[in-house]
Design a protein around this nucleic acid. Structure first.
Lengths: 256, 256
DNA sequence: CGCAGCCTTGATCGTTCTCAACTAAGGTGG
DNA sequence: CCACCTTAGTTGAGAACGATCAAGGCTGCG
């Protein structure tokens, strides 16, 4: 449960006592999913809540004639389908993007758990708020950024989130296909390929066996207009190379 | 508080007793905002929660060189800035799109209130989940739909939400400028104008003094690929003309 | 009446898409 | 161990959707 705890703690310290209740809770079941396995299916009742231990998942929706839109990725430490707390039907799919290990709670047990500790409840509120913020940023990304900016911005977000989840590596273990990136960013795989080639030629990123390395963080951040504030991560978690240019806090934030 | 109650009740009945606590809560203050007034400013600490009584608000984010992206609209009955519960800094603006009346709670008072009633708390969870779902749909809209589909889809969503909030009217009181629509849908005002002209010529919508009337609901829904499920509104609230074609539940929902 | 803001329409431009062919890498079976 | 197959990435050429630039019209308001 370390990744979860680390994650929840970033908002506010969880008292040892509350944590005990949580981690010894009998309803927890750890499950493994294969790469590509569908974890949540649109139309099925949402009745369980997942916490990612290891691996990646993607949430997406299909619309007519095969178009797919990935709305977001769930990484190590992420909680998902909090939606199940309202016992609705899932309106999207969740699929393991890599082999995935996750804790699974029934939403009923989860609610019981939350009632027992206001601290835990607050942590989950925070998780929900953070996810909303990530979704909003995704809207801005695909609504108002160019292809190059979109790709750079998404890479920076994923890098940031992976590091917040404890990754020490400099490279992003980004075994996402061009099609995944395209379906996330509202582009075509062909154009993603072209644009990433350009980023490579410009010396901003490099790739090796599905790992992406950011070669020039500063320039990439400027290019993307990346400001990590929306992730609401405490400073302690960001590396010292992550100084965020206050790009979008000056003239940008003026009311129109 | 009727609009709020109606809204919250759509998820689960709130016991009279719990409602009493809520509506007589002394911390509530009703405030009025002028059209165009900034209600929440990016960078300011988020410390209050709003419930819309009357009017519209828009939430948006500014990025470099004046680009604006509206992430969503808050209508009658909507609760916003639940984010304040985690006492973070706002990462976006909220602005009154029309003259606006809203109840304002301090987030602290709000938390107290929520602790007193699990029913009320559950209702707010539901509100948060619904908002997330709306955000995800917005991502799909701008990521994978054409300009025509985007406009049609947004109009249908707004109509649906207005009706769920109690509007009896057939027309949508949509005093949004083309620029607003453009900034919501990731388009330019010019292209929105052109596309809406086309929808008018095709007899799908008509406009009069900022009111938009949907002339051919069925065709528009098909065109937009609109499936209201994501709004998670109980059927009781939808008019009988709102039969939703199960467009996106057949082949569409197959895993790729 | 005149200004300001918004909408509309036309002409042209450009980013991104589509279609298509080729390459590279990995897996499988003979 | 190599031939074959599949899947993903790359690159080119041309098309299309939406952007940009620009001019003119309508409406409301001081």
């Amino acid at each position: 449960m370390d990744s979860l705890r680390r994650r929840l703690q970033t908002f506010s310290a969880i008292p040892e006592e509350a944590w005990e209740k949580f981690s010894t809770f009998s309803g927890v079941e750890v499950r493994e999913f294969e790469k590509g396995e569908i974890i949540v299916r649109a139309g099925d009742p949402a009745e369980v809540i997942f916490i990612v231990h290891e691996g990646w998942a993607r949430r997406y929706r299909m619309i007519g004639d095969g178009r797919r839109q990935i709305t977001n990725f769930m990484l190590r430490g992420d909680v998902f389908d909090l939606q199940a707390l309202s016992s609705l039907k899932a309106d999207h799919f969740v699929q393991a993007a890599t082999p995935l290990t996750a804790s699974v709670f029934s939403s009923r047990d989860f609610l019981t758990l939350i009632r027992r500790s206001g601290d835990i409840a607050a942590s989950f509120w925070w998780a929900a708020v953070q996810e909303e913020s990530i979704l909003r940023e995704q809207i801005v990304r695909i609504g108002r950024r160019t292809a190059e900016e979109r790709i750079a911005h998404l890479l920076l977000e994923l890098r940031r989130r992976l590091r917040a989840a404890g990754s020490e590596e400099e490279s992003i273990d980004l075994r996402l296909t061009r099609t995944d990136l395209a379906d996330t960013l509202g582009l075509t795989p062909v154009h993603v390929s072209r644009t990433m080639s350009r980023l490579r030629k410009e010396g901003l990123i490099s790739e090796e066996k599905g790992y992406i390395h950011i070669e020039n963080l500063n320039t990439l951040q400027k290019l993307a207009g990346f400001d990590a504030n929306y992730l609401h991560l405490p400073m302690a978690l960001s590396g010292k190379d992550d100084q965020v240019p206050a790009l979008e806090n000056g003239a940008d934030n003026a009311a129109p």
